[in-house]
């Protein structure tokens, strides 16, 4: 509270020095910190449980160590978890790639274009986003079964792409909104085509937007349960969500192994977030949703 008041007089002419990162209130700092620690600890209990149990020796184990990697050795050798992991990675990375490739140019149009058609397109995206996945899953299941795509990774990748497109396009549009159009105009005057301007100006300057979109698509595809549950029937085509869930149902009481496969499943998204979280912003979604 007192920070900007005690600023030297000469900077009084620049009240903007109180940047957003500076706390508007500095009172009661210690209890805020203590409260944060308590709330964070409470929040993380379920996640700590997963990690803790995965490291505990099972009842049948002969080891005397309090902490062991035995459960991981068991699930890696005795289950198809590595196949599921590979399937999940293939499906997720393909979804991310296609979503970004499709959403980036569409987001560009949504950001730069104006008029009835563009508004209509934006509204279409909004309606699609409100539809429950179950509405599209049933017809697509029947359609894909006709092409032999019902139990295939390609099939569910397509469904994931369909369910990411709306939000991915908004996220790209929101980011492209922040790039001044003057940059492209300069490029056009220098002889660049629209496509050239898009690649050289927009794509080059929207890494945070692209990463944000990619993280969103990654989480959606990696964490989805419903689509995989409906489409994937054979154990070797399972992705992690259905694989882990079927493993949980078959080994109800073997918590060590259950938590070991769970840890394997949650490591990739956590790693992704730990390294890239500063790029991830959902604030833009709303702006582009209601802004046009």
């Amino acid at each position: 509270m007192s920070a900007s008041v005690t600023l030297p007089a000469r900077s009084g002419a620049q009240p903007a020095l109180a940047r957003p990162s500076r706390a508007p209130e500095e009172k009661g700092k210690w209890w805020r910190f203590a409260l944060l620690i308590v709330l964070t600890a409470l929040t993380l209990i379920p996640i700590a449980v997963v990690i803790g149990l995965s490291l505990q020796p099972s009842a049948a184990s002969t080891t005397t160590d309090p902490i062991t990697l035995e459960n991981f050795a068991t699930v890696l050798t005795e289950t198809s978890v590595l196949v599921w992991l590979r399937n999940s990675l293939v499906v997720t990375l393909a979804t991310v790639l296609v979503s970004v490739l499709v959403a980036a140019p569409a987001g560009y149009v949504l950001s730069r274009g104006r008029g009835r058609v563009v508004s209509g397109y934006s509204l279409l995206l909004f309606v699609i986003q409100s539809l429950p996945v179950i509405v599209s899953v049933v017809p697509l299941f029947i359609l894909f079964a006709g092409f032999g795509l019902s139990d295939s990774l390609f099939g569910i990748t397509l469904v994931y792409v369909g369910s990411t497109i709306a939000v991915a396009t908004w996220m790209m549009a929101a980011y492209i909104d922040s790039i001044p159009i003057a940059l492209e105009e300069a490029a056009w005057i220098d002889g660049a085509s629209v496509f050239g301007g898009f690649v050289r100006i927009i794509l080059r300057n929207s890494l945070p937007g692209i990463l944000s979109t990619a993280i969103f698509a990654f989480l959606l595809a990696w964490n989805d349960y419903l689509v995989a549950l409906v489409f994937l029937r054979s154990e070797l085509s399972f992705t992690l969500p259905v694989g882990v869930q079927s493993f949980v149902q078959q080994n109800m009481t073997d918590w060590g192994s259950i938590m070991a496969v769970s840890v394997i499943m949650m490591i990739p998204p956590i790693l992704l977030f730990a390294t890239l979280n500063r790029y991830f912003s959902v604030g833009g979604i709303g702006g582009s949703l209601a802004g046009r």
């Binding site: 993380l44 964490n223 992690l240 869930q245 949980v248 949650m266």
Partner: peptide, 21 residues
């Protein structure tokens, strides 16, 4: 980052943990 984890961790995993709890 820590407070984002409940949203980042797959539901399949967190529901198992809640079940155990």
């Amino acid at each position: 980052v820590l407070l984002l984890l409940p949203w980042v961790v797959p539901i399949v995993v967190s529901s198992t943990a809640w079940n155990w709890l």
